[in-house]
Write a protein that binds this DNA or RNA. Sequence first.
DNA 1: AAAGCGAGACGAGACGTTGCGTATTGCAAA
DNA 2: TTTGCAATACGCAACGTCTCGTCTCGCTTT
Lengths: 201, 201
Amino acid sequence: MPNPDPARRNEKSRRAVLTATLDLLHDLPYPQLSIEGIATRAGVGKQTIYRWWPSKAAVLFDAFLLLSEDGEGALPVLPDTGDLRADLTLVLRATAAELNDPQLAAPMRALATEITHDPALAEAYHERLDAPLREAKRQRLRSAQAAGELDDDLDLDVAIDVIWGPVLNRWLQRSGPLSDEYIETLVTTVLEGMRRRSPCD
Amino acid sequence: MPNPDPARRNEKSRRAVLTATLDLLHDLPYPQLSIEGIATRAGVGKQTIYRWWPSKAAVLFDAFLLLSEDGEGALPVLPDTGDLRADLTLVLRATAAELNDPQLAAPMRALATEITHDPALAEAYHERLDAPLREAKRQRLRSAQAAGELDDDLDLDVAIDVIWGPVLNRWLQRSGPLSDEYIETLVTTVLEGMRRRSPCD
DNA sequence: AAAGCGAGACGAGACGTTGCGTATTGCAAA
DNA sequence: TTTGCAATACGCAACGTCTCGTCTCGCTTT
């Protein structure tokens, strides 16, 4: 009797577990979230959780997946008004708003920290959650390249890191607020670069 | 009998606890690190730990503090050869080497993740560990401003985030290797900016 | 078609283990 | 003589495994 048969899996129990996980995270910090607590809240046997998920982090990941699938069925797309600076500012502000929302912040922090300790989870994250979003960002930057706003030989992946890395980092490390001013300055710095220019602008 | 008297504290026990913490982190991931394990390894009573530290994270923080104080008594300074690009590349490579060293990586990951869940720890981190390093970075950038390499109205704190944020982020999220090529491209992108330039370089 | 059957997921919860944080006991140092 | 110390017992909570009895399927047999 090796593995359980996914075909016979009870979808209702699955969703109950995931929503219970999200519910509980509204009230208590992730480290205090327990499998037993999830099972009780979901009205589910502990074994049902241990049967389908290898770890608390895996449950969290699926819960997160449920969240993002509910929000948007299709692939994410970044706004493209032709003004890259405006679009980036808009998107980063939206991101900041999400990160400042305690509702979403709790599971996001939890996922982010589990990823740093669990390589397997990290890979799943990049495949299922990060990749589509990253592709959307890449697409927007490609469009800006086509429009002549960006250098053609710019490394888009590095560019994405340079734009979003500081925001995520500031949030994770709590080094400061994700204010509009910060985002404004960030976008300017990234677009213009740090080097002094000869006076030809 | 309210608080213990720090004057009568046993320095030997203190160091035993902190070094035991670091030792244990070489062998097992941080989540599996237990107070009881530290006490046993250190040859110390559990109560001695609970008397002086409020949490596992606090022990970790002090252990980390011990590490950085051992490494360098004085304030850190970044190299300044007059060539900002070269200096940044050098420093980032050194940082990447540290982060790639499993010895140091374990406690660093642990500290980074605890910070995201514990605001009090985050503040202590920024005061005692991040601030001095950040000041050194700021100083180097100021020097570059004075040398005319950088714009005078550049926001140095944002600049620091833009340079170091992507590295830390890539490492925490395991989104890719901290290779020399990555650092090279990163430094170039940050210094030159993403925007297309009119041909006046 | 209807009744019987086996497999396997399910809710519930007991079980031994582990680590938590507290309390107690001598001992040693200041 | 006071108080931090190592050691260890304690109650508690969550762990992960296990064993129940129930249920829901899909496949036979009639």
